[in-house]
Design a protein around this nucleic acid. Structure first.
Lengths: 327, 327
DNA sequence: ATGAAAGCGCTAACAC
DNA sequence: GTGTTAGCGCTTTCAT
């Protein structure tokens, strides 16, 4: 590998001069040397060693993003938003899948610190704070799943209570009299909040909150599928508010198997607006989150923190109902 | 940030000793010192500076993965397979989205070289080789989209000719007499091959190859949708072989709009077997690629190259028809 | 069993 | 305008 020293030798200058030219700090460099150096750099295909540079500069222009699973449509969109924003600002992204495991999350926090990333974007696996997190003093922003933390961190979230509240109200406005709720267990704030919004809407409309109509497991298609069987064993509903779109997919599938028509017999509303919702049958009515933007803003806020520009640390983005055919 | 030197001072040893202990090169270290050092490391929460280590060792334990778009279900699965495999082997992954732009691809190749990644996994944007690629002498493996390259690289692909050949034959076996093909333009080897397989099947079955029944644009839902209108303007088909599942989604949507039933009037087969295919209406019959494994194997081969174990550089993985309801 | 010291490739303060 | 030099935090050879 050719180094700055070698370029310097070939150009009959010092490596300091080469460094200045390369980095555009060429105020006091003669036009002639500048040109000569640049030519040689080009000719030799010189590529600066970013590792050496990072060691000296104490910054890597790299951020880490820890999320449960890129294969999940929601998180892949967050990741894309983040990567695009990072690229625009000259940062590079290390991708870490936690598989919702706290251990893996901790492991990655550690690795990212070793790699000296300038900042970390985290979708936390659980609600409880781990020591890893508090200890880590790299700039951090939390996306999607919020978390109580002593130290200051950025937060990019939506109002989840409001989201399911609006969703449930929408179902009620469509004439539903008996509304079920299928979602994840309350292992994190987000899941808690979504349940809360559902209950709030029922309460305000004088409808009974029936534990038999609530099925909580995880944010997966399978949960939706199981949820249908659970709900219809316990009785009957004419509307289901789903904790996310994946669950809604499973619910619709389960309903089809049971020969129950959507939306005629049971209306379904999801949450997230993942990109395939509109291709489902029936196309999914859902609560839209600006998913891509979540990732984008996470990076923007993170980089502001890194570069010490002050900026709002907490952003609550808006949700809105997207009406399609399932409700 | 606390350094190895500081730990050394606290433990009354040299940094050389600390280094040896940390890295398990402690054959000649007394049990007592070893313990003492480890305790202090633990107590102080010392995290080694991986950048300094990388500079010295000339390896970063990091690989770069360049793919068109993680939001695309196919590539997010490749990415997950790759990340999981990398994690198992102690490597970390830098994610780069090229958006199918050759310029961005080149830019990333450059950045990854600066970051001194140990290897690169690439899903090339186009068929032509760019100078960037030939110049780059970091170990590389190509996934999904193959490419002619002078230098030796790993390749993880499926037999695309065979894939669409099998798909088209399947349609024929189901009684289709007039089969259309909707896919991407032949900008890369993969697209060329899939078209070839389709033509081969028709030819072998004595069926006419009608340019009006072929619509080539890109590997997107929109192309599928447009393709339907194109095909049915030009005449009529009773089966459509799609270049990938995304296209199939668009085709099914277009057909629905036109009130044409699938699979009764037109049978549809996709390619890839992305994870949502089974939730479509009707569930999608398709040519399965082992997508996750593509990513996994890419990393395995790459790391073998990096670590100079010899191994098969080229892997052709199998495809198989997954029969669901659309054909 | 442990330490001193060189050096990885770069930047920046300071000297000239 | 340009060069000298120290030092970023680590590993490793070689000496003791």
């Amino acid at each position: 590998m050719i180094t700055i020293k070698e370029i310097a030798r070939l150009a009959n200058v010092s490596s300091a001069t080469v460094s200045k030219v390369i980095n555009g700090k060429d105020r006091y460099i003669s036009e002639e040397t500048r040109k000569r150096v640049l030519e040689i750099v080009e000719r030799e295909g010189y590529i600066p060693n970013g590792i050496a540079k990072s060691l000296k500069m104490k910054r890597t222009k790299t951020i880490g993003i820890i999320l449960p699973d890129v294969m999940n449509l929601f998180f892949s969109e967050v990741a894309k938003g983040a990567e695009d924003a990072a690229e625009r600002k000259g940062y590079t992204v290390i991708l870490c899948n936690s598989d919702n495991s706290k251990a893996k999350e901790g492991k990655y926090i550690n690795i990212l610190q070793e790699k000296m990333v300038d900042g970390i974007i985290l979708t936390a696996s659980e609600a409880e704070t781990s020591k890893y997190l508090e200890r880590c003093n790299i700039p951090m922003v939390l996306v999607d799943r919020d978390l109580e933390l002593e130290k200051p961190v950025g937060r990019i979230v939506v109002d989840n209570v409001e989201g399911t509240y609006k969703a449930t109200n929408y179902l009620i406005s469509k004439g539903c009299k008996s509304i079920g709720f299928v979602s994840s267990q309350e292992v994190n704030k987000l899941a808690k909040e979504r349940l809360l919004g559902y209950k709030k809407a029922l309460r305000e409309n004088g409808m009974e909150i029936d534990p038999n109509k609530i099925f909580l497991k995880s944010f997966t298609v399978e949960t939706g599928y199981e949820g249908v069987y659970h709900l219809f064993n316990q009785g009957h509903v004419d509307g289901i508010c789903c904790g996310n779109d994946l669950i809604a997919i499973g619910v619709i599938q389960g309903l089809k198997e049971k020969g129950i028509s959507v939306p005629e017999e049971v209306k379904i509303i999801g949450f997230d607006n993942i990109c395939i919702g509109k291709y489902l049958d029936p196309p999914l009515t859902t609560v839209r989150q600006p998913i891509y933007k979540l990732g984008e803003e996470a990076v923007n806020v993170l980089i502001s923190i890194i570069e010490k520009k002050d900026i709002e640390m907490v952003k609550v983005l808006d949700t809105e109902i997207v009406v399609r055919a399932s409700a």
